[in-house]
Nucleic acid binder design. Structure first.
Length: 200
DNA sequence: ACAACGATACCCT
DNA sequence: GGGTATCGTTGTT
């Protein structure tokens, strides 16, 4: 697996649906305290808009909880739900409350560690959902507000070449978002077509 | 101080 | 596909 460059501030400083689409096929990597690598390929994301999106946590403006959505693009927004955690990355620009939810990852590195963290040996159930992947990677609200640009412990990297995506036939599908009751008609969920690692 | 509620997932069927 | 455990955030007393 050839990794490309770390994703830049500029990458995240775009509309959340653009970022969500382009994140498919990139790599999410967590380095443990002893330097081991956990993570894999991002195969499913959802965009949450700053305006006109009733499902977005930023819909009622800035609060203590969603502060990281309004931080610099590339900032991690981690929130708790149902006694679990979900991770997002802030997009566009500071003071604009938009983000991309990471929904599913294809496990590639640190299978042993992630299985232990998930208390789960079935690979298909390791990172197949936003809360699952956070548990597998050891991400919680202590990571909220982390600036991904320049963070040593948590890294997002591109594929080696943008052409590589085309050559390996990675195609991105799009549809309505999952697990919410409003704004489900908006085509803001993105996923790798044909992937067996999606949340649903 | 407290109760309701989720951008969930698990454990059944 | 349905019921429910579980807990931080939020809005209401």
């Amino acid at each position: 697996m050839k990794l490309g460059r770390r994703l830049t501030r500029k990458f995240f400083a775009r509309e959340p649906d653009q970022v969500a689409r382009d994140l498919i096929g990139t790599f999410l990597i967590r380095y443990t305290a002893d330097g081991r690598r956990l993570g894999g390929k991002i195969v499913e994301t959802e965009a949450y808009l700053a305006t006109g999106d009733p499902a977005s946590h930023s819909v009622r403006g800035k609060t203590a909880r969603n502060l990281s959505m309004f931080a610099k693009p590339g900032t991690l927004y981690v929130y708790s739900i149902h006694a679990k955690y979900c991770m997002n990355v802030a997009t566009e620009s500071e003071e604009i409350g938009s983000a991309v939810l990471i929904r599913a990852v294809q496990p590639l590195w640190g299978i042993q560690e992630m299985s232990a963290a998930r208390r789960q040996t079935d690979l298909r159930k390791l990172t197949r959902g936003p809360a699952m992947l956070c548990e597998a990677l050891g991400i919680s609200t202590v990571d909220d507000g982390t600036d991904l640009i320049g963070c040593r412990r948590l890294v997002m990297r591109g594929a080696e070449q943008s052409q590589e995506k085309m050559r390996t036939g990675l195609q991105v599908g799009c549809g309505g978002r999952i697990g919410i009751s409003v704004g489900i008609d908006l085509p803001l969920r993105f996923y790798e077509l044909g992937s067996i690692w999606l949340s649903r």
